[in-house]
Write a protein that binds this DNA or RNA. Sequence first.
DNA 1: GGAAATATATGTAAATCACATATACATGGC
DNA 2: GCCATGTATATGTGATTTACATATATTTCC
Lengths: 126, 126
Amino acid sequence: MRPRESNRQGRHLASFALLLCAEEPTHGLALHRSINKLLPEGLKVDVGNLYRLLREMEARGTLRSEWSTVGSGAARRVYQITPVGLDELADWREDIARRRQAFDLFIQRYDALPARNARALKESAK
Amino acid sequence: MRPRESNRQGRHLASFALLLCAEEPTHGLALHRSINKLLPEGLKVDVGNLYRLLREMEARGTLRSEWSTVGSGAARRVYQITPVGLDELADWREDIARRRQAFDLFIQRYDALPARNARALKESAK
DNA sequence: GGAAATATATGTAAATCACATATACATGGC
DNA sequence: GCCATGTATATGTGATTTACATATATTTCC
């Protein structure tokens, strides 16, 4: 079970969606582009699932939307974060900070593996 | 959809299992304890799924096991990492480093949110 | 010898994911 | 005006994963 090559939206998708909507209201497709630009290779998000998530988040009250026809192109549903969403975003920040710590620990300990594990160290030098 | 409170094994469970077995051969329950000590609150691992994973990893050839009766207590299946496992562990290191970058970015951008998002900043100050 | 702990599993309903498909409108070319 | 292409918002769904429950065997300790 090596790191997946296929798409994986990850459960922090919601966190990134909240963050980006807090920075600036956007619509689904733009959000999709931003998130996928920001995420590493194996974690790209499926656009269909993003739309589903957005509606669910609106139902939960963390985002709210309205149709926008400003500019050119098809009408967009523009999402912005709510006060409830800001609270949850704060929770996500804590959560992500903790995960990052676990990742740090992993990397520290990996890099500290004895040199006899030649393959591992060779790869990590890239 | 805030950070889950319930258990969540995450797909990096395999990576931690490989790492700990690379550091030193161990058996399932000990591995379970180590991993859960190391993981943050919301990411604790289910022991049943860990056992399933271990067998699958052995089938894939990233770990191999043998029964051990040294010491006291019930017989244990002790796992150690294989050369193939070391290769995959190296892949995991890359993968996790990339994810950590995404997390760093999230935190940076969260902390840079304008102060008018009062709730968010208040929480993050903890 | 019996209760509690240790150790290794398996069963399974519900949730999530990855990928396919659908619908509507706009835009630019001809 | 019409059609191909692009943009935007969805829904459908089979397969996988997860979270939690249960099963089985052995050991330890009183």
